[in-house]
Amino acid sequence: MLELRLVQGSLLKKVLEAIKDLVNDANFDCSATGFSLQAMDSSHVALVALLLRSEGFEHYRCDRNLSMGMNLGNMAKMLKCAGNDDIITLKADDGSDTVTFMFESPTQDKISDFEMKLMDIDSEHLGIPEAEYHAIVRMPSSEFGRICKDLSSIGDTVVISVTKEGVKFSTRGDIGTANIVCRQNNTVDKPEEATIIEMTEPVSLTFALRYMNSFTKATPLSSIVTLSLSSDLPVVVEYKIAEMGYIRFYLAPKIEE
C-alpha cells in the first residue's frame, strides 16, 4: 500500500513539466527515504535524478519498496488537471497495475480521482560516484535559463569556462559568435540574485545547448541553479526543491576529436 499526500501539489506538476520532454518513460521508486526517479533520455546522453524526501510529504505511507513505471507524458497530462493550489495524493495498492492521483481543492469543495495505467519498464540504474568538482557556480536560475535560450539562437553548443573572475558562456554559429560573462557577485541584497563561484582550478567544457535548454524547464522549481563542473566529468545542473529534495540533470561534455 502506497499513499503519499503532498500539500504543495504544484511541486509535482512542476517536476513533470521539467522532465517530460527529456524522458518518455521512467520508473518512480518509492521507499522509506522518499519518492525518487533516475532516468536517461532516449539517446543516453543526459540523466535526470529526482528526490522528494518522505519528510516533505504531509502523509507518507510506503509499506514496502515499490517501483512504478509511468509514461511521463501521460502523467503530465493527468497532473495538468490539478489546480496549482490543489493537494495531490498518490495512491497505489500492492500488486496493482494502476496508480491513482487524487486532487483536492484547498477548500475541499472539489475532489478528483485520476487513475493511470502503470507500465513495465526495463531501466538501467546507474551508480553516480561522489566527485570533487573543480568549479561550482551558483546563480539565479532565471539568468541561466535566459543565457541558454539566447545562445541557442546563435549556436548548437555552449562552452562553459570558469575562472576566479567569473563564468563565461560562449557559442559560435553560422551568423557569428557570442560570449556572456557573469562575474562573481555576492553583495546583492537578495541571496537568490547572487552569483557565487567556488573554484579549485579553472575548467572549460563544451555542452549541447539542446539539453541545457531542456534542463532549464526546471526553473520554476527554484530561484537558484547550481552548476558543478570538472574536467572529463558530466556537468551537474541542480535545482533544489524547497524542503523536499532536488532535481539534478547530468550531461556528458562533448569531446574534441
Binding site: S43, H44, L126, L233, P234, Y250, K254, E257
Partner: peptide, 14 residues
C-alpha cells in the same frame, strides 16, 4: 569536430 559521448561512459550500471 566534436563527439557527444553517452552518460554511460562516465557512470556504470549498478
Amino acid at each position: 569536430g566534436s563527439k557527444q559521448p553517452t552518460i554511460t561512459r562516465f557512470f556504470s550500471k549498478v
